[in-house]
Design a protein around this nucleic acid. Structure first.
Lengths: 308, 308
DNA sequence: TGCCCTGCATCTGTTTCGGCGATGAATCAC
DNA sequence: GTGATTCATCGCCGAAACAGATGCAGGGCA
């Protein structure tokens, strides 16, 4: 006996139409196929189901058997369910609702997420955003594994299979203890830092970036401390342990432990960090991702204009 | 954009297997097809759905996108629903449950139905029998149109597309008013009825049968009354309006209006009426029909043995 | 850094399957 | 009987699916 697994959607569709019209000839016209196709499809379906579905009344139409009646209803339900499932899968790409998972580079999170999430919620109340805070390696993994549909980060030399949209350029700056002699200068040449002690924000890609800035000015830094934590670095600097180089810049200079840092521009012509929204090149951009990207652009634009 | 109507069950099955294995290569082995087939099927499905379902991680497996997650669950549900529907359609042919519609020749109904229905209900509590009382033409129509899956009747010269199983032979007999001179005879030669007045049970096939019996004895009957009703014929006979010829024979000779008839065998060697169970030759006999047929055989067997 | 292994995509030749059109068989209406 | 209707069947064809080989990219390892 033929296995039910071999039943075809076409067979079901032809059967439904034939059962609806109670005529294979009419059904064939409706379906824009030859009558023989309908006849063959129904015959196959009957064989595979193992039950007679129609009673053939020569020169009259068809009549449904009990099994046919039963299958007609069920088959309609199955096809409707399939359509619904496909629409749902489609809809997930095209509607700004449901859930989107994104990743955000850890140091950026406190600067952006609150505003971005608020803006998205305002614009698209039915879209829920789940955020993963990641480092450079984590960003790549999150994209690849599908854990995150998009990543907010710097441009960590992503491979070609990652699509990047640059939102802004974030210049590096120097932070110093308030009492530091160099704090008197408006702009600090990196060369001047050669013999100062440095507090390094020690994150995978950031680390190499900071060191490359100094190297381009011929400076090999004296690294006094390393930390994964952005605020930890600031407090170490404020306490007088050394200077640091950072990109994002809080709106104030206070630290958690009540001190403060001073922020100074870099006099050298050094590259800023590209702030990007990264997605997989192999994935079509969904409307949901676009909505979040829009919010990020707006928030970043606001923060840049405030700083001027 | 490709229409969702072109989605194939094979595509769904391959997709589900690939999503389950998180690998097209493994899925292909499970499915006993080439890896290229799975790859192509998934690619087509993605195109037709209009959404990306997998994230391809070279040299690693696959990861499901949000749309893929969604579709995986829905597709499984659809396939399960389809299997269920096919099983249901199949089951209707193989299980003795649900509903069966049969037809019964009108004059037989009061002799058989009560016992048959009781027996079926006893043997198969989950099987409901719906009965249509029909004449000879109605029996044929009921079969053809699917209104009845089987018919209990005499053999009305059904065409070849009707399968007949003969259950019994029902001999014709003569009924007379109690006071009739011929009532003294144990067996009555038809020739003796030549000048008697006849009450004809006037039903399509029965009519021709009764007249053919008389004709075979060279008798052209004097028809005094015709009636479609079996009991009407009996009461007319009891009242003395004439004689009649019938086949089935009540267990008593009383009539509704308090009179009685006498029943006498026919002396001539005339053909009995074949009592048959008729079904469409083009339909496989279902277990349900078989169950009812069994009950009919038992009931008819009982009634014949009682009469001896 | 170079090599191998893995895993998906793609290409090519082959086969299978579904559909078309014509024909046949059975029935009904006239 | 004749024509019309309706479904089944047959031969042919084209498109689609498949298998197998190859290509390509990334990860792991030495």
């Amino acid at each position: 006996m033929a296995r039910k697994a071999d039943v075809t959607l076409t067979q079901l569709r032809y059967f439904i139409e034939a059962a609806t019209c109670l005529s294979m000839t009419v059904a064939a016209q409706q379906l824009l196929v030859a009558q023989s196709a309908v006849s063959a499809a129904v015959a196959q379906l009957e064989q595979q189901v193992g039950a007679q579905l129609f009673i053939r009344q020569r020169s009259k139409g068809l009549a449904l058997t009990a099994a046919g009646q039963q299958l007609l209803g069920d088959a309609r339900a199955v096809l409707a369910g399939l359509d619904e499932a496909l629409d749902a899968a489609r809809g997930l790409d095209n509607q700004v609702r449901g859930t989107i998972r994104i990743a955000c580079f850890v140091t950026m999170a406190p600067f952006l997420l609150a505003d971005v999430l608020a803006l998205v919620q305002e614009e698209h109340p039915h879209l829920e955003v789940q955020v993963l805070e990641v480092d450079a390696a984590g960003a790549r993994d999150a994209l690849r594994s599908g854990q995150a549909e998009m990543v907010i980060s710097y441009d960590f030399g992503y491979s070609d299979d990652v699509r990047r949209e640059t939102i802004a350029q974030v210049p590096a700056h120097v932070i110093l203890p308030a009492a530091h002699p160099l704090a008197a200068r408006a702009r600090i040449p990196l060369r001047e830092l050669a013999h100062e002690r440095m507090i390094l924000l020690d994150l995978p890609h950031s680390r190499e970036y900071f060191l490359s800035l100094l190297a381009s000015a011929g400076v090999e830094p004296v690294i006094r401390h390393r930390s994964h934590g952005y605020e930890t670095v600031r407090s170490l600097v404020a306490k007088g342990h050394g200077y640091s180089i950072l990109n994002l810049r809080p709106r104030h200079d206070q630290t958690y432990d009540g001190r403060s840092v001073v922020t100074r521009a870099i006099a050298d012509d050094v590259p800023a960090l590209p702030f990007v929204i990264a997605t997989l090149a192999s994935m079509r951009t969904t409307a949901r991702a676009q909505a979040v990207a829009d919010a990020v652009r707006v928030v970043v634009g606001r923060q840049l204009s405030r700083r001027d």
